[in-house]
C-alpha cells in the first residue's frame, strides 16, 4: 500500500511539473504546440502561442488563419529539425520542416522555415516576422 501511495505521489508531482512548465517551457515545445494547433485547425490556440503586442491584432490574426483555412490552405504536418537559443537566453530560433497544401486539391509541398521565438514572463512565444 505504501509503495502504491509513493508511486501515485511521484506520478502526481511529475504530471504537475510537466503541466506547470507546459508546452511553452522550451522554444521547440512552443513551436511544436503552435504547429500542432494549426494542424488541428484550432486557430485561437495557435494564436495563443504568438507574441502579440496589441490585443486588437488578435482577431485579425485569427481571421487570417480562418480565412486561409477556408481557401483550403492546410498545414498538414511538421517536424522540428533544430533549436538554437541565443546567448542572452531570451531569444531562439527553431528550424521547422512544414508540409503544406496551399489550396484545396493541390499537391502537398514540403518546405523548411525558421521560426523565431522569444521569452515572455518565462514562456517562449512565437514571433511574427
Amino acid at each position: 500500500m505504501k509503495k502504491l501511495i509513493s508511486f501515485l505521489s511521484i506520478a502526481v508531482i511529475a504530471i504537475a511539473m510537466v503541466g506547470c512548465g507546459g508546452s511553452t517551457a522550451t522554444p521547440s515545445g512552443t513551436v511544436d504546440a503552435y504547429y500542432t494547433a494549426l494542424e488541428k485547425g484550432d486557430f485561437e490556440k495557435a494564436v495563443s502561442y504568438i507574441k502579440v503586442s496589441d490585443e486588437g491584432d488578435i482577431p485579425v490574426l485569427v481571421g487570417k488563419l480562418e480565412g486561409m483555412s477556408q481557401k483550403g490552405y492546410v498545414v498538414k504536418s511538421h517536424k522540428i529539425l533544430s533549436e538554437t537559443i541565443a546567448e542572452d537566453g531570451e531569444n531562439a530560433t527553431v528550424e521547422v520542416e512544414e508540409v503544406i497544401i496551399e489550396e484545396a486539391g493541390a499537391e502537398a509541398t514540403t518546405q523548411t522555415s525558421t521560426t523565431k521565438v522569444t521569452k515572455v514572463d518565462g514562456k517562449w512565444l512565437v514571433l511574427l516576422f
Partner: peptide, 22 residues
Amino acid sequence: RMGNSIESAAVITADRSTTFSH
C-alpha cells in the same frame, strides 16, 4: 473600433495594450 467577437476577448497574450481590431 474594437470588436465584441469571442476572439477579441478570448486569447490572452503577452502585452494587452488594447487598441482596435477594425
